[in-house]
């Protein structure tokens, strides 16, 4: 550690003026020669960062991979953990639930978020206050939002059932979080509520970078508000919507707080998603090896989605 600190302190003093190297072609041959040639360049400055990345990202990935092919005592067991976890009927249910939860959440978040973003971009009185209020769901901690919703959804005490029943809209209390066909839509709604402000703020930022001249030109040609939205706003927003979608996919597959806090995946696994399944396998049943196998598969599937998304996006831009 001391050496690193010293070299960091000394290198800038000793180093000759940096040579332009960005234009130089990548050197062929050994990495060692490359490092020798560039030891006064940026490589050494980023080494500490690389070391941290290796410690906190690469090492856990490798250790997960190893745990996924060994048993609790560290003996190699091949694909047994994978076979076990694939055969479990929980995995199938969790997969279907995850796809439902993520897809439905993203579609609704994009629609609602974009609409809110467009509205917030208009000039009206109290605009600043409305913008700030819109952010509230996104700003408050996930666990707080989840617990509040859980109470609002409660069958006997919940304010939602109270309103519905006192207005005579329903006869019997709705079991929002325990009716198997309602629980997942209800949780999706909470997730949409939590994340749509993020979409709307991103959209708002995107809207403000659209040149006003485009709208002025359209107005000269007699375009209505609807024409403007369809033919200027949305096409101009496409790149930013693409990156938001990517972020929402990542947030969606990793979201555990809302569902775990509200239902723990119940009743009878009806709202179990893969991230909760991994958590429960690892930290409640202490089956770290099967949890690792599941994590590896989950990681591969998410990576495929993300790579496919980036590739499609790149192709679209290329056209």
């Amino acid at each position: 550690m001391q050496n690193a600190a010293q070299s960091m302190a000394q290198t800038p003093v000793q180093s000759p003026p940096r040579q332009p190297e960005r234009s130089a072609p990548a050197p062929r041959g050994r990495i060692g020669r490359y490092i020798a040639a560039h030891k006064d360049g940026p490589t050494f400055f980023i080494l500490p960062a690389i070391a941290l990345l290796a410690t906190f990202i690469v090492y856990p990935i490798i250790s997960t991979l190893i745990m996924s092919v060994t048993d609790a005592n560290g003996a190699f067991v091949g694909a047994a953990n994978y076979v076990n976890i694939i055969e479990s009927d929980r995995t199938a249910r969790a997969t279907v639930n995850t796809i439902y939860f993520v897809t439905a959440s993203i579609i609704l978040q994009l629609i609602l978020g974009t609409a809110a973003g467009i509205v917030l971009n208009e000039q009206f009185r109290g605009q600043a206050i409305v913008r700030a209020l819109t952010l509230i769901p996104w700003v408050i901690p996930g666990i707080v939002g989840a617990m509040t919703w859980a109470w609002m959804f409660h069958t006997d005490y919940g304010v939602i059932n109270y309103i519905l029943m006192s207005n005579g809209l329903v006869e019997d209390p709705v079991r929002w979080l325990t009716n198997p066909s309602i629980v997942l839509p209800a949780l999706t709604a909470v997730n949409v509520w939590k994340m749509f402000p993020f979409v709307s703020i991103m959209v708002l930022a995107g809207l403000q970078s659209i040149p006003v001249s485009l709208y002025e030109a359209a107005r000269v040609d007699g375009a209505t508000f609807r024409d403007e939205v369809l033919h200027i706003t949305l096409p101009q927003l496409r790149p930013i919507l693409a990156s938001i979608t990517l972020l929402l996919i990542i947030a969606g597959v990793n979201s555990i707080t809302i569902i775990y806090a509200m239902t723990k995946g119940g009743p009878a696994d009806r709202s179990l998603i893969t991230s909760i399944q991994i958590f429960v396998e690892a930290f409640q049943y202490f089956n770290f090896n099967q949890a690792s196998a599941l994590s590896v598969m989950f990681f591969i599937v998410s990576t495929v989605f993300i790579v496919a998304h980036i590739w499609l996006d790149g192709r679209r831009k290329g056209q």
Partner: peptide, 16 residues
């Protein structure tokens, strides 16, 4: 048993 049964553990039952 009340409709909220699937939300009820020991704590909730005491409250009810």
């Amino acid at each position: 048993s009340p409709p909220s049964t699937l939300e009820n553990g020991g704590l909730e039952l005491r409250r009810l």
